[in-house]
Write a protein that binds this DNA or RNA. Structure first.
Lengths: 120, 120
DNA sequence: CCGTATCCTAGCAGATACTG
DNA sequence: CAGTATCTGCTAGGATACGG
């Protein structure tokens, strides 16, 4: 492991992070993860049903993106009719802990909703 | 404080969280926060310059959204030419700690980038 | 300097239809 | 069942111009 400058490492952290963020920030991503956290393992249409009104197209896209980010793993059973099982990875489970902290932070402050603008 | 069911509280946490998330997930939001964390206080065009190629329109919108979320506070000095200073609130500083954890999580795993699909 | 008002465009969500 | 292919509408974001 080379000796990187701290600034460079900070820069790197930011880049890598915003990369994942772009996926997580998209519509449905978090809801999909939430479902998988709870269910431990789920199939495509099962997921689709429990998500309400998401389309196959979008669900498929989100799953692929998150798989590429190493958040979801996929297991194909070569049967007829086809069976595919999705689950969260260890990486995603670690993320879940932090997301939970985020959730607690969010309610702890409960959006003040008042303007904080001050005129001097 | 009433006695809420845990499920209800969980539901609430999720709602409040996704609310903030909608703001944070938008383009530029995190970068703006990052700049303010470092600078402690910044003016509009100063911010605009250091962000690269953001437009006034968008910067203005992001700042307003985050102000409404209680993440940013604004101070107007009634001078000519006008001076306005932005800074992060205590709420945002707490958030910063968690975001930092997120950053560390992101590099710790460094997107594997390989397909995790397994055929059984 | 600090923004708002307009207009324009790309990209994404969603609907529908169809395959292995 | 588990997806792709294709099309459409919408809206976030960017460029530009202007006003307090």
């Amino acid at each position: 492991m080379e000796n990187k400058g701290i600034a460079e490492e900070e820069e790197n952290k930011c880049q890598v992070f915003s990369h994942v963020w772009e996926v997580l920030g998209k519509r449905w991503s978090l809801l999909i993860l939430k479902n998988l956290y709870e269910k431990e393992t789920a199939r495509f249409n099962e997921l689709k049903r429990s998500l309400g009104k998401i389309s196959s197209t979008v669900l498929s896209a989100r799953l692929l993106e998150m798989e590429r980010e190493g958040l979801i793993s996929k297991r194909i059973f070569p049967e007829v009719p086809p069976r595919v099982e999705y689950r969260v990875t260890a990486r995603a489970r670690e993320l879940g802990i932090i997301l939970n902290e985020l959730g607690e932070w969010a309610v702890r402050w409960k959006s003040p909703k008042m303007a904080s603008t001050k005129v001097q």
